[in-house]
């Protein structure tokens, strides 16, 4: 077995060195991608203009990838029995601080999500930032409290509803005689928080969706595996 691995590492090495050698022959063409994007989408963050404007189609699938992974993790981990020995940290100071951090991270995450079209960030990052705070709270809570406050069923329903809302937002333009995934709301003044048509709306929805999904993943892992 060792020999076989050695041979494949050698082959891989040869291939990579060939790639490095032939990288000289690859020219570089920088297309003019920046001008016009703001006029088209109303978002001054051109990356967001691509991410949620021109290539919204990819982003829809990206959300689906995340959802599929969450659903798969929940389903597959459901096979193993839940762990009895979740031992939360119950010191008062830790509880208060984690709660504070949770609140702060939710607000930060929300801001990052909503302002995705005027500064760096966006829905995905915002959602995960919020979820990180929630994970801290999980360390201090008994399992029943976690299950009551972050109820699996309600979270699943919300997740599905938000997903459907995003897809409907992508489909509405057809009814107005435009092509699907077109930005059908007024674009507003670039640079303001209310601008960019559907981009901030979709960003917010993605943020909430990702928050729920990441919390679900973390909760399932903790439920079946315990923390640390």
């Amino acid at each position: 077995m060792k020999n076989i691995r050695l041979i494949s590492v050698l082959l891989f090495g040869i291939f990579i060195s060939m790639l490095l050698v032939s990288a000289e022959t690859i020219s570089y063409v920088q297309p003019d991608n920046v001008t016009g994007a703001v006029k088209d989408t109303g978002a001054i963050n051109v990356i967001a203009a691509y991410y949620l404007g021109y290539r919204l189609f990819d982003t829809l699938f990206e959300i689906l990838v995340f959802t599929v992974a969450v659903q798969g993790v929940v389903y597959l981990l459901g096979h193993i029995p839940t762990l009895e020995q979740h031992k939360p940290m119950r010191e008062k100071a830790i509880i208060i601080y984690t709660d504070l951090i949770f609140g702060a991270s939710l607000i930060t995450g929300m801001y990052i999500a909503v302002a995705g079209h005027i500064s760096a960030g966006g829905g995905f990052v915002g959602g995960i930032v919020g979820a990180t705070g929630a994970v801290l709270v999980f360390l201090t809570m008994p399992m029943e409290d976690i299950e009551n406050e972050f109820n699996h069923k309600y979270m699943a329903i919300w997740e599905a509803v938000i997903l459907i809302t995003i897809f409907i937002l992508a489909l509405i333009p057809i009814l107005k005689g435009m092509s699907p995934m077109e930005n059908f709301l007024p674009l507003g003044t670039p640079g303001h928080i209310i601008s960019g048509g559907i981009i901030p709306i979709v960003d917010t929805l993605i943020g909430i969706k990702v928050l729920i999904g990441a919390v679900t993943i973390a909760q399932t892992f903790i439920k079946h595996r315990g923390v640390f």
Partner: peptide, 26 residues
């Protein structure tokens, strides 16, 4: 010059993935 990518990598790659690994490896 890619702040969006950096934020995604920092939150997803550095924080969340590490958390999941630590829990999974227990």
């Amino acid at each position: 010059g890619a702040p969006d990518v950096a934020m995604a990598e920092a939150t997803l790659g550095a924080v969340f993935t590490t958390f999941i690994y630590v829990v999974a490896m227990k």
